[in-house]
Design a protein around this nucleic acid. Sequence first.
RNA 1: GGCGCAUUCGUCUAGUGGUUAGGACGCAAGGUUCUCAACCUUGAAACAGGGGUUCAAUUCCCCUAUGCGCUACCA
Length: 497
Amino acid sequence: MNRVRFAPSPTGYLHIGSARTALFNYLFARHSGGKFLVRVEDTDLQRSTEESTRSILEGLKWLGFEPDEEIVFQSDNADKHRETALRLLEQGKAYRDFTPKDERADGDVKAAIAERAREQGAEKGLRDNPYRDLDRTASDARAEAREPFAIRLKVSREGKTSFDDAVYGLQEREHSDIEDLVLLRSDGHPLYNLAVVCDDIEMGITHVIRGQDHLTNTHKQILIYEALGIEPPIFAHLPLILAPGGKKLSKRHHGEIVSLTTYRDKGFVAGAFRNFLALLGWSPKSEDEILGLEDLIEAFTLEGINRSNAVFNFDANNPRRWTDDKALWMNAEYIRTMPLDELIPMVRSELRSEKLWREEYDDEDRVWFEMVVDVIRERFFTLKDFSEQGRAFFSEDFDFDPAAVAKHLKKRPKLEEWLPEFADRLEKLEDFSHDPIYEAANEFCEEKDTKLGILLNGARVALTGQAVGPSMITAFELLGKERSVMRLRSKVAWNEA
RNA sequence: GGCGCAUUCGUCUAGUGGUUAGGACGCAAGGUUCUCAACCUUGAAACAGGGGUUCAAUUCCCCUAUGCGCUACCA
């Protein structure tokens, strides 16, 4: 049975790239009837926080990925990792390195690495550590004398490692390009490469599905598997998600846009965002794009993953383009087509958080509430729209869009008399439903020798504060006689700037 | 600096040794008419560049360019 894991390091919120990695792991597990596990890689004690762990798990839950077994915390296994390093030392497959640890600069680590490499040039040999072939008794003696040391893997001088990546194909790397990696720090803490390998073995992981940034490091892990005499799992590396312009998508430069919780907080339907994420770097055989969780599970295969990085397109300077257009479109598509039963709870919690919720909506006004939601969702993009653009349906306290007031009211000064007059007509209607309202509106316009649109567009602004919205006749019906009449008579909109 | 990976419309992508290079988002135009940011229809829009191999290359090979990743006693 396949066993996969999602292994985030808790050093911040859940990045959308990580969320997609979790998604692919989850889909792979479900598609093949395997297990989806979660392991929190908290070996970097300095940077790991509990709050981050909490927010990552919350994010996974929102997307609907519950782990099939208890969550593993990597730091709990540190002793085992240490034992493993010691065992390799014992077997002569690793050695003690007594070189004093050099303090690395905090800022641009990458630049420092490149600089060092440039200086060392071609004469640098990755095998020339003086302690690599230190006599065993001498090594033991120095360790006995409490001299600090790190444990490094003894990579053989000749040959190469290779593995067949499920996405990128055959990968080969010369040993001469791989240094003797550190397994255990001089302070006794295990390092990442050792920890992942040990834990993946311990957890019985069969497929490692992770970001492409791990592709070249995989060779180091293969070397550890070999030293341990254990068959490595199958690796499948995923293309990265980039920012517009092909740059790295980072918190530092792109802010909250990279955090999964942003999407929840800004009114995304989890299923819609999940659907969008799935299409970034993977595609189904069919041309369908709207895929629910079950569809994704059925269609998902490693073969469908492509190799080039995907750009997550958005415009930080344009509020309507705050995230990828297609993601927004997809969210709108979900909102207007999903079963009402599923949408209602989401709208309820949105209204609750904006203090617009009334218990009657779940009770005696339930039918009315569902009708309203069903009508207004047609033009909405996010769940937030229910409390913003749709606010007038749930509260008397709503704003008027100045552009709408200018275009549909101020430009037609006569409406200031007509709307209250029309209110009188509506008030007299015994049957306040579609046809009678429509007739009354038509009659009124004939009398005033004006077009229906002028009256209704003006009414829309007066009743909802918006220039766009559902059919106005329907809006009258939904708001009811009392509120319609009151708002038509109100001068509030006219006094807006 | 070294090593690795990638490159099809603006973006996400499909695809093949011979195709009108397909779809989606976005964009544009037209339609609908009570509004449009909804809906319907139509349209513009791509094989990074240069060499090979071949009857034929977007597809296979090489080089260049560009981007990304790794290169750490980070994960």
